[in-house]
Every structure is written in C-alpha cells, then in structure tokens.
Design a protein around this nucleic acid. Structure first.
Length: 528
RNA sequence: GCGCUCGUAGCUCAAUUGGAUAGAGCAACGGACUUCGGAUCCGUAGGUUGUAGGUUCGACUCCUGUCGAGCGCACCA
C-alpha cells in the first residue's frame, strides 16, 4: 500500500520526500512535510508551496483527495484502491505482508553458557531474536539463526567441578570444602544424581573425572536449554561450538599479525584494541598459551564473516555491552567491514516477587528459571510481555502481578477480537468466500478507517524489522484489536444492510491479527 | 573515577526515528446490554517529557552541562 503511494507521489514530485502517517486520520491516510524543507530553497512559505503541489495531483485511482493543511500535504486514499487491496489480501493470505528483500542476515542470539538452565533474562533476548527472525523471513530476508555455544573455558570447568563436589557431598556423603566460586542451585545436585545413574557413583571418587563431568554436564545443559527454548517455540538452525573453532586460531592470528594488530608483552599476546577506542589493549593468549574468551570470539567472527552474509546481528545481554568495542575492533583488524555487525542489547530484566527484588545471577542459585515462568503464565504471555517493550529499556515486573494477569492480559484482548470476528461470521452463517468480492464503497468514515488500519500490517512489519523494534508489532495488534472492539460496539453487523461489507472488512482485520500474531510466535485463537 | 544504556501520567510502557493537539493499558471515579459473546465499549481525571541551556521553520527525539537508576570497567564468560 505504502509503496503504491510512494510511487504515485514520486511520479509527480520527482524527488525524495518523507512520507508519514498523520497523527489523526482526519487529515488523511498519509502526509508529507516536504513543503517545509522546500521553503528555504524556493524562498516561499510552506503553505504556498503545499498549495501548489496539491494542485498538481488529480484525484483518480489511488487518491480521493490531496489537501494542503498548514504546510503539510495530506493524501486520502480512494475507497476503490482500499477495496482492491483488501480483496487481494483476503485471497492471498499467505502472501499478505510478504516482501522481496534479498539481504542475507546471520542472526545470533541467546548463546547462553551451557552451564545451567535459561533464566528470565535470557528469555528476553530469546523471544526478541525469534520474533525478528520470523518477521524478517516473512519479509523475504534470508535469515540464518545461530547459537554460539561457549563449551570451552573456565565456566565449563567450573560446571564439572560443581557437579563433582555435589556428588561427593550428596551421594558419597563426604565432607566437601567448597571453593569460593562454583555453581549453586539445585540443578547441580540433580545433575549429580543423573551422573550417578549414567556414569556410576565412582565418577565422584577421582578428581581426574572432573574434565569428563564438564563435558558430560555441558551436553546435558545444552539439551535442557534446547528444551527450554522449544517450550516457547524457538528452534535454532545452527549451533556453533566455541571449542570446535580453536583449530582455526592460527589462521585468524596470522591475519591479525599481517595487519600488525597484535604484539607480545609479558609472555602474553595482546590485541591493539585501543587503536579503535577501547579502554585498553586486551590479552588474547595467556602466558600459559591458553586463549582467552576474546580469542574465541575473534575466531568465531572471522568464521562468521567468511560465510559472507550481508549483515550480522548479535543479540546480547546488556551486561556484555562493554564487549562491543573489542569485537568490532577485532573484526576491523581481520580486514572486514565492522559496520556489518549490529549488536542489539537486551536490557536487564529486574524481577520482583511480592515487592522484593530478585538478584539474578547464574553463579548463585538464586535466579528465576525461564521454564518456571513459562509453566506459570504460558509461552504466549511471556512472549507478549517481552515483545511489548523496546529491548533497550530496563524492564521491571513483579512475578506475582504477572501471574495474576488473566483478562487484563493484552493477549486475551487481541485473541478476543479475533475470536469475536469468527463468531460473527458463524452467526451470520457466512464464510469469507461469500463476501470477498463484495465492493467496499460508500462506507462510513469509521469503517474506512478500520479497513485502512487493518491493511497497515505490511508496513508495520517492515518498519519494525528495519528499526529492530518488535514492540511496534505488538503495539499495532493492540490498537487494531481496540479499533475492532470499538467498531463492533457502535455498529450492528448481522442483519444490517451493510452486513456483507462489514463481514469483508472484519475478514481483513482478522487476517492482520492472525498474520501479525503468527509472526510474534503466538497462534490466534478461533474461539475462547 | 571512566564508559554504555535509560529517565515520558500514581504504576507498566508507546510516540511514524526531527513533524501537526505527547498516546495506550493498569489503578481511581462515573456511565452503556432482556447482547452479532460485557473477556467489550463510552466518559472524567491524570504531563513544564528528570533538570538547565543550545541547534531550527519545528525537539520526547539531535548537541553540551547537570541530577538520578541499572549495567560494565578481567589474563570470567
């Protein structure tokens, strides 16, 4: 819809312009403030320019009216145009909102350490990444989703040690001196019991088995993470193991050396990240020859860029923000265009329970499991809460309040609108094919506005994806549902003279609700 | 101390990325059905967009200062 409008206006103006939607539909469906920017150039008042431009347009197929108001140029679409689009949309549901972008994008998200179950903070990035992937794919982008598995390093070792010690204490009944840092939480003890069943309790008798328990535990945790994700309908196309990339270190290291971006000092190898604004240079290989985490990420991003995507999106928890400069530096030093990497930060989620703050930490056992919240409120509600907020705002909510949400939950509100439309069709004894060719003309202003809103989904999706702000979709769905409920309360459908027109109109609304919900990972209900 | 993110109605959040009168939901109050499902709708009230400047036709949005919150500031990941 927007594209047709832009094409028609470009034909007349022969120049770039900003097209926006007026705050109030009373002005028109679309508007452009171009007269303001032309004012200086033409040395005339915006109001005069707007009037002149409007005179160039003749009302025809697309526009019913083109009017200047206070310097803005407003476009009102013709019913004929809206009706044609509506008919097409109803008859081509699977194509509605589709587009033909060809950009290829590698989307990496979640990538939580395989040392424990996912917690509520991970869920935010997970849900946002998944929605972006769904929307992007719908718009034609070639999106590959990927999970980077940190299966090497201290954290995994610590997991093995924690299971080992938990086994000694809980299964062998031995006294254990716990180190300062280890993984707490009952899942470690559970793991120890599973280890006993699968590996035998003797595994806890020799500390040489810690390495085995690390690998074993990591695999178990990855399985658990996958099932946590599956519970909210998230499936990754690829998992990339950090460990498996270490073979390629030499290759990446040579590139860095060739560009003179590393140096040796104190027996360690450093990367010159200060050259591109980092606070200090970073160690990539320790004195004992073990690579640091950053080395792993350098190889990984080298590997990513070799796969030659048009763009790379990483969704990280906001606590990793300080890491962006380093990784971008590395990408630059490897000889790639670091602007192709976009890092979206999912801000911290602060949870309250009964007004008490919850401190979330993976190392302490005191965090809220994503799976607990999902089983309490369901996947749909969890998704909707996270998708309704910009990812970079600090989000705070009380679990108890979240649990209470039932009829006040916006999901119910939207589903109700969708189910309601189905009920009306049933009541009228008609189906969509009976009304899809009805001409939508001479409708009230309200009906036309509702139709226009319902047809906006494609451009909302485009906007949401471009700006990487999925809350635009949930916001749209809430508004569309509200418009439907309002219209329903003010207009009798079944039995009225305009029954068929309204049914067709409602069919378009239901279509947008259904497609929009599907793209945020929620299935619209036919009845409630 | 330095850096990143954020600060909008009592609460939780939007605001077409620099555009027209800053909008929703919750909470509060007052209304609307012998109903196409009231799980809905209508109305009232609620704001100096943390604060002080600046940029311009125009600022919640951009710049500078300042206050406050969260998170970082590893040879952990």
């Amino acid at each position: 819809m927007k594209k047709s409008v832009i094409r028609a206006i470009t034909e007349k103006l022969q120049r770039e312009f900003v097209l926006e939607k007026p705050a109030n539909l009373f002005f028109g469906h679309y508007a452009t403030p171009i007269a303001f920017s032309l004012a200086k150039e033409l040395k005339k008042s915006p109001i005069a320019i707007a009037e002149e431009i409007c005179a160039q347009f003749d009302t025809g197929d697309i526009f019913k009216e083109v009017t200047p108001i206070k310097g803005y140029i407003n476009f009102k679409l013709s019913e004929h145009f809206l009706d044609q689009y509506a008919t097409w949309a109803i008859q081509n549901e699977s194509l509605f909102g589709k587009d033909e972008n060809h950009e290829s994008i590698l989307l990496e998200y979640v990538s939580a350490n395989p040392t424990g179950p996912l917690h509520i903070g991970h869920a935010r990035g997970a849900v946002i990444g998944d929605a972006l992937a769904r929307i992007g794919q719908h718009l034609g982008y070639q999106i590959t989703t990927e999970y980077y598995v940190n299966d090497a390093g201290n954290q995994v070792d610590l997991l093995g040690l924690s299971i080992y010690l938990a086994g000694r204490e809980n299964i062998l009944g031995l006294h254990v001196n716990w180190p300062e840092e280890f993984y707490r939480g009952e899942y470690i003890v559970d793991l120890a019991h599973v280890a006993k069943a699968e590996l035998g309790s003797s595994v806890f008798e020799d500390e040489a088995n810690i390495a085995l328990l690390s690998t074993w535990g990591k695999d178990k945790m990855l399985e658990l993470i996958k099932s946590n994700l599956a519970d909210v309908g998230i499936y990754f196309e690829q998992f990339v193991s950090e460990k498996s990339l270490y073979d390629k270190w030499d290759e990446s290291f040579i590139k860095l050396q060739q560009h003179d971006k590393t140096y040796e000092e104190g027996g360690k190898i450093w990367i010159r990240s200060t050259e591109v604004g980092d606070e200090k240079d970073r160690v990539v290989v320790r004195e004992d020859g073990r690579p640091t985490y950053l080395a792993g990420d350098i190889i990984y991003h080298d590997n990513k860029f070799q796969r030659n995507y048009d763009k790379y999106i990483n969704i990280w928890g906001a606590d990793h923000h300080g890491y962006i400069t380093r990784v971008k530096a590395a990408i630059n030093f490897l000889g790639y265009d670091e602007s192709k990497l976009e890092v979206l930060l999912a801000q911290m989620v602060s949870l309250l329970k009964g007004g008490e703050p919850y401190k979330m930490s993976k190392r302490a056992g005191n965090f809220i499991l994503m799976s607990d919240v999902v089983s309490e409120v369901g996947s749909d509600a969890l998704r909707f809460v996270f998708l309704s907020k910009k990812s970079d705002t600090h989000l705070e909510f009380d679990v108890d309040v979240f649990k209470q949400e039932d009829s006040n939950n916006p999901i119910f509100y939207i589903n109700y609108a969708h189910a309601r439309i189905n009920q009306i069709f049933a009541k009228a004894g008609k189906s969509i094919v009976d009304v899809e060719n009805v001409l939508l003309k001479d409708m009230s202003e309200d009906a036309q506005n509702l139709l226009f809103s319902a047809l906006l989904l494609p451009e909302v999706l485009e906007d949401a994806f471009h700006s990487r702000q999925v809350q635009k979709v949930t916001e749209y769905l809430k508004n569309l549902a509200a418009s439907l409920h309002k219209f329903y309360n003010e207009n009798r459908v079944v039995g009225s003279a305009e029954e068929e027109k309204f049914l067709k109109l409602f069919a378009v609304v239901a279509l947008s609700l259904r497609v929009g919900m599907k793209l945020i990972g929620i299935t619209a209900k036919e009845r409630m």
